[in-house]
């Protein structure tokens, strides 16, 4: 039988799903055990027990100096930046993307400019942002917006331009004004794509967030990782990385669920 026709039984599929994760953990345990057997003070691959102790210290013990629970303060300040950056980007994508998609004036004005801006490497702008906007929250949020918004705008404008011309004309014969076409025809059909686009931009948004925090911050997940790097505290870095991954994956999952719930017709149309 051809490989492409060999379907798995459900238990086998489940086992395969977990296999890579189990393999990763096993490899870590073996590596960690062998290194610790050679040198009990090894910091590179700490044992699970010392990782658990570090998690307890970061998440469930108040900091001796400030009295904060560091993991939660870090998470909160990072998520605030991320939320603000992605929120502003989404709003910009919605307004400018739909504007470009339906108004010839906007298209002529903004398409070349947005294409140009989306080619600027955002990390190269980071020094400029820090110098001009200061080291506070604004520059970090601005970096996320500059990194994410142009791509979302282009994506949404493409989606709107791909709507059949017949639909727009039909709406005109149903007495719609430009504004009504935007909010009743184009916006609802652009929203599913906007959510997908937001999902895809979660990864880059985290990248820009951590880059900005690594350089200058006083709290945040990226800040903490780069702070404890100086002491080779892998027992803190590993759980932080796992936590960031978990946050990103949950956001991804939540947006996907929201998509299915809000736009049932989009699934019927083949996930447009």
């Amino acid at each position: 039988m051809r490989l492409i026709n060999q379907h798995l039984s459900p238990p086998a599929a489940t086992a395969l799903k977990f296999a890579p994760f189990a393999l990763l953990i096993l490899a870590y345990l073996l590596g960690s055990a062998s290194r610790l057997a050679e040198n009990p003070n090894d910091k590179l691959l700490p044992a699970f027990s010392s990782i658990a102790a570090a998690v307890d210290l970061m998440a469930f013990t108040p900091d001796r100096r400030t009295g904060d629970y560091l993991l939660w303060t870090d998470t909160w300040s990072s998520l605030k930046r991320l939320g603000a950056g992605l929120g502003i980007s989404t709003a910009l994508a919605l307004v400018i993307g739909i504007g470009i998609g339906i108004l010839p004036f906007f298209r002529a004005l903004l398409v070349p400019f947005v294409s140009f801006v989306s080619m600027v490497p955002p990390l190269a702008l980071l020094p400029i942002l820090f110098i001009s906007l200061g080291l506070g929250e604004t520059s970090k949020i601005a970096l996320i917006v500059i990194g994410v918004a142009p791509i979302m705008i282009r994506d949404l404008a493409q989606t709107v331009l791909a709507l059949p011309r017949e639909q727009i004309v039909k709406a005109e014969t149903l007495s719609a004004s430009s504004w009504l076409i935007a909010i009743r025809i184009v916006l609802p059909q652009a929203m599913p794509r906007l959510l997908s686009s937001l999902r895809l931009q979660l990864g880059p948004a985290f990248l820009f967030l951590i880059a900005a925090e690594a350089i200058s911050a006083d709290s945040g997940l990226g800040y903490r990782i780069f702070l404890v790097r100086r002491y080779l505290s892998m027992d803190v870095i590993f759980p932080y990385v796992a936590w960031i991954t978990f946050l990103a994956a949950s956001a991804d999952f939540a947006i996907d669920r929201l998509h299915r719930k809000l736009f049932p017709w989009s699934e019927l149309e083949g996930g447009r």
């Binding site: 017949e166 639909q167 004309v169 039909k170 709406a171 025809i185 609802p188 059909q189 989009s266 447009r272």
Partner: peptide, 20 residues
């Protein structure tokens, strides 16, 4: 110069709105 409510249209495809 532009389509309006006095002239209705039905195309072969894309005449109805998929999100409604």
């Amino acid at each position: 110069d532009e389509p309006g409510p006095d002239r209705g249209v039905v195309y072969q495809k894309y005449s109805v709105f998929p999100h409604l």
